[in-house]
């Protein structure tokens, strides 16, 4: 197999493959780390690790990837595959990894928002500006801290990385249904939180 695993076929960093990594070819290791380090670090911080834990987990992710190269089947991009390793290491590290808690809270929110026919009973309020101002960004960033680890992980892969659902399910080892549920709850929670911040703001 000599597939280009960089994720971007026409990248300037050149063609390097799993075989290059196995042979420890000069440049391949460097390219692997250079191309993926920023995203992995961002992902680790997005999941909620401290900076020092994030660095540790990112390093261990590369080590695990290189040690288990044979297991990489190319079904997701290297980047997403690496993120999957990172996600599982991060969850283990966080002794009290905040997994998705009982679903009741968000179901209750939905039931309060809609009537029996599914029409808005309490329509959404809050900002919807096309231009993103710093205040909204800060709100949303803080709101994201209220998500569970797995919700942040799927949001990061889907909305920030733009990864396809199949690859996300693969990397995180979750079902397609699970992915939809996690994304659904993550976005609803973020939107509710954004609206709360907006309503609290003195006008």
């Amino acid at each position: 197999m000599n597939a280009n695993i960089g994720g971007m076929p026409d990248q300037k960093t050149g063609e390097w493959s799993v075989a290059d990594l196995k042979a420890r070819r000069a440049g391949a290791l460097d390219a692997l780390v250079s191309e993926n380090l920023p995203t992995l670090l961002a992902g680790a911080l997005a999941i909620g690790l401290s900076r020092s834990d994030a660095e540790e987990v990112v390093q261990e992710t590369f080590v695990a990837f290189l040690s288990g190269l044979d297991r990489f089947e190319g079904r997701s991009s290297v980047r997403t595959y690496l993120f999957g390793i990172l996600y599982h290491k991060a969850s283990n590290l966080r002794a009290k990894a905040r997994r998705e808690e009982s679903h009741d809270d968000i179901e209750a929110v939905l039931d309060a928002r809609f009537d029996a026919a599914g029409m808005w009973a309490r329509p959404p309020r809050g900002p919807e500006a096309a231009a993103l101002d710093g205040e909204i960004r800060a709100w949303v960033e803080r709101c994201a801290e209220g998500l569970s680890d797995d919700q942040r992980a799927v949001f990061f892969l889907r909305e920030v990385e733009g990864e396809v659902p199949e690859a996300i399910c693969n990397a995180l080892r979750i079902s397609a249904t699970n992915l939809r549920v996690l994304l659904h709850r993550a976005k609803l929670k973020l939107r509710e939180c954004l609206e709360k911040n907006w309503e609290k703001k003195p006008r």
Binding site: I136, A144, K187, R191
Partner: peptide, 9 residues
């Protein structure tokens, strides 16, 4: 609003 949230994150 969902688009605003995605852009923000």
């Amino acid at each position: 609003q969902l688009r605003v949230i995605s852009r923000a994150l």
